[in-house]
């Protein structure tokens, strides 16, 4: 009986908890980028998914280059070493886009909806650029040790029937996400520049009156967004794989996460990311295995006990989004300002 229970817990961790925590961290980092742009620049950035794709692509290119030169940080994936370079290139790209595209509309004080359409144009360009440079296909770029703990080793260690596998990419995701989030909150809450960003997001006129330079705030925002997008994209790519179209599709769960948490609220973005990830993984998981351990033998489920097929995982973010829009449009954390 006790063993069954332990097996159920292990199976649950292996197939639901660990993957959902990793995916949730990735979504949270993506949603943070969306929410920062919304809070400071005040528009929904539809190019964010493709910004993530661009950032990841540069990381992959640097990774390949390092690999060809024999540079490695085994057992960690080379991509971690390439990450700062990818962030730098993406930052340049975003600052360039702001300079060439968005700044004009800022000067005009354009409506958010115009920004949104402009971001569609930017999305097109980034999408084309990424496909042009690296192609539309799947790229795997994870090297180094694949597992921290293999299912087989776990079984041998514990004597349980169920194995627990922890992928390197999953633990790297969690550790990186924690570091990034701490750094971001430290920046926003403790530094003068971070506070000026929050002030600008809270009350633009009063920020101007206090002598805060809006262009400086905007530059810092794009720098942070570049870092967040590249890190989120790279972690997702390490964990699964890199395919430009998948990154475009991530737009929906990412926006759902940001809106569920409350657009403009960084804390909300993180909570939203985990809400979406856990719902997605739990609803598409086939619970047969876990239930078989928990239920008396006579009640063993005959089917897979999967609520919804994996193909419909987008429907889950969408349904959560709709429920939030219907019942609490400001999101869990009452967004609007950083």
């Amino acid at each position: 009986m006790m063993i069954d229970f332990l097996n159920a817990i292990v199976a649950l961790s292996n197939f639901v908890l660990i993957p959902a925590i990793a995916y949730g961290s990735q979504l949270a980092l993506g949603a943070l980028g969306v929410t920062l742009v919304y809070g400071v620049l005040r528009f929904s950035n539809f190019a964010h998914g493709d910004t993530m794709a661009f950032g990841t692509m540069t990381v992959i290119l640097f990774t390949w280059w390092f690999q060809s030169m024999g540079i490695s940080i085994h057992p960690l994936p080379t991509a971690l070493l390439a990450l700062p370079f990818g962030i730098a290139v993406t930052a340049l790209l975003l600052l360039g886009t702001d300079r060439v595209v968005y700044r004009f509309y800022r000067k005009q004080k354009a409506q958010p909806v115009i920004y949104l359409i402009v971001s569609l144009g930017v999305m097109f360009i980034l999408n084309g650029l990424v496909r042009f440079i690296i192609g539309p296909g799947d790229q795997r770029f994870a090297d180094g040790e694949r597992f921290i703990m293999k299912a087989r080793d776990f079984k041998a260690m514990t004597g349980l029937k169920e194995g627990l596998a922890i992928k390197t990419s999953q633990s790297i995701t969690l550790v990186t996400a924690i570091i990034v989030v701490i750094a971001l909150f430290w920046f926003l809450n403790r530094t003068r520049t971070g506070k000026s960003m929050r002030a600008f997001s809270d009350n633009e006129d009063l920020a101007l009156l206090s002598g805060i330079n809006p262009e400086r705030v905007v530059i810092y925002t794009w720098l942070i967004v570049a870092a967040l997008a590249t890190i989120a994209g790279t972690l997702y790519g390490l964990d699964k794989s890199f395919k430009p179209f998948t990154y475009f599709q991530l737009l929906l769960p990412i926006f759902a996460a940001a809106i569920v948490g409350g657009l403009g609220s960084p804390l909300g973005a993180i909570a939203g990311g985990f809400v979406i990830a856990f719902s997605e993984v739990m609803i598409t998981y086939a619970w047969k295995k876990v239930l078989t351990y928990l239920m008396p033998d006579s009640l063993d489920p005959s089917g897979l006990v999967q609520l919804i097929a994996t193909e419909y995982k987008f429907a889950i973010s969408f349904v959560i989004l709709v429920i939030v829009l219907l019942f609490r449009p400001t999101g869990l954390f009452r967004g609007k300002a950083l």
């Binding site: 000026s196 929050r198 002030a199 809270d202 009063l206 920020a207 805060i212 300002a337």
Partner: peptide, 14 residues
């Protein structure tokens, strides 16, 4: 005329 999401002290800092 205040930053509502910031603390009193942060308002003064700004």
């Amino acid at each position: 005329n205040i930053f509502t999401t910031m603390t009193v002290e942060e308002n003064l800092e700004m």
